[in-house]
Design a protein around this nucleic acid. Structure first.
Lengths: 238, 238
DNA sequence: ACGCTAAGTGTACGCCGTACACCTGTCAAG
DNA sequence: CTTGACAGGTGTACGGCGTACACTTAGCGT
């Protein structure tokens, strides 16, 4: 009876259900509390049950990354390569905003999952369709690095603080101590020098989105220039 | 007697000795086998002994990062900002080549150790001395991101494979399977399209150093252009 | 009704970081 | 020369982790 009810309400496990639960858990509690044990508990199941559907934790992470990558917008058809790529990358970034643990997960993996490869392939396709040589496209992909996936390693990363949920932290990074300005005068100077975010005296209340787009456009402009002048990497002597 | 000998040969522990041993261990065995237990064993000491000199493992990692950062060349005096920064960053990169675990360690920390801050401060100082506004310098630092520390998140990172020692892997990444070219034609196409590394048919035998410098110069050129035209970020409406 | 298979369980192992109580060697003050 | 404080090293133990491996159970085609 009670057992019957239990049996009924328990949707059977599946790789997909596990992945979605894992993403949800990481979103809510942070990647550091994503353990096989916690995940199993969330699913009302014993830890080892998961291993019938994923080989190990690494494969679980790969699967989670795939879930993320699949959320990135597809290429807009009939668009100039520059605009198409820009939109694509910003879409990727928006996805990551909902899953702040993803960059760290991606970095920690050696990653070459099919979903990621398919995405990268489509990015390259855009460049090629825009008339880029394979050679230039190669270097461009290297140059973009993780940026094509919507993130880049920032020096101080508020968002990726180990702690809890994805949302930006309510407290604005606890104003820097006065001694800071003495020891690192140039850092202190530029901390407040960005005009965005009104004139928050604290600094650090930086507009991540602006900075990301700034760097992205700088890269795209440089890339465009190289493309226009038919740049090719110098042949190696031997 | 034997005890006396032991007492004599055992150099007393110290924070410094611990940090150097930790760096050596990570260099040789990879960051994933840097545990308090392994480290203690290398030092001929019981694990808990370490805690008399470092508060916990995170602080140990911070200390290791500082050791790395201190190896970066100081600024060359009387040099144009562009060249000075270029050299500095490439010096940082060279340091990291000797300590391939460092990027991952840096990424995993929230990092704001004094040594790192001092380094960043000196980088900013170079820009300011070159006539950059504090505003532009701010955005430039964001744009460079982890690149000022000599690394950037690559999509496929041979060097940072979890495995062993720092040296580049002897086997050249085990040639991609034929099905690859069918499923990801554009990736396959550009894989072999870089002219460096002779014409290795395998592709992937990519010259990391070239790609890094390529992206670095692209950024520096773009930055120079903005600097020349006195760029400033648009004021926020409110 | 039977038995095969896939799904879920339980127990256990060897790692990890580290809290906490303990011992011990060194050295200055009496 | 004794003493006692204290810094540095030890030993034990706890709770967490990923996961190997042997097991029960549920569901289904015959």
């Amino acid at each position: 009876m009670a057992e019957q009810a239990e049996t009924l309400r328990r949707t059977p496990l599946s790789r997909d259900r596990i992945l979605r639960a894992a993403v949800a858990l990481a979103d809510e509690a942070g990647i550091e509390s994503l353990s096989m044990r916690n995940l199993a508990q969330d699913l009302g199941v014993v830890p080892m049950a998961l291993y019938k559907h994923v080989a190990n934790k690494d494969e679980l992470l790969d699967g989670m990354i795939d879930v993320i990558v699949d959320q990135i917008d597809p290429v807009a058809p009939d668009t100039h390569w520059k605009d198409a790529t820009r939109r694509r990358v910003l879409s990727a970034r928006e996805v990551l905003r909902r899953h702040p643990w993803a960059p760290l997960a991606i970095e920690s993996r050696n990653m070459a999952t099919p979903a990621v490869l398919a995405y990268l392939d489509s990015v390259v396709a855009t460049f090629r369709a825009g008339g880029f040589s394979a050679n230039l496209a190669h270097h461009v992909m290297h140059t973009m690095g993780s940026r094509v996936l919507g993130f880049s390693q920032e020096l101080f990363d508020d968002a990726r603080r180990v702690g809890r949920s994805g949302a930006a932290s309510p407290e604005p990074a606890a104003a820097l101590p006065p001694e800071f300005a003495d020891r690192f005068p140039h850092l202190a100077e530029i901390a407040t020098a960005a005009s965005h975010d009104d004139q928050s005296v604290v600094g650090q209340g930086c507009d991540d989105q602006f900075e990301f787009a700034f760097a992205l456009d700088l890269l795209l402009d440089g890339i465009e220039r190289l493309h226009e002048q038919g740049w090719t990497s110098p042949r190696r002597s031997r």
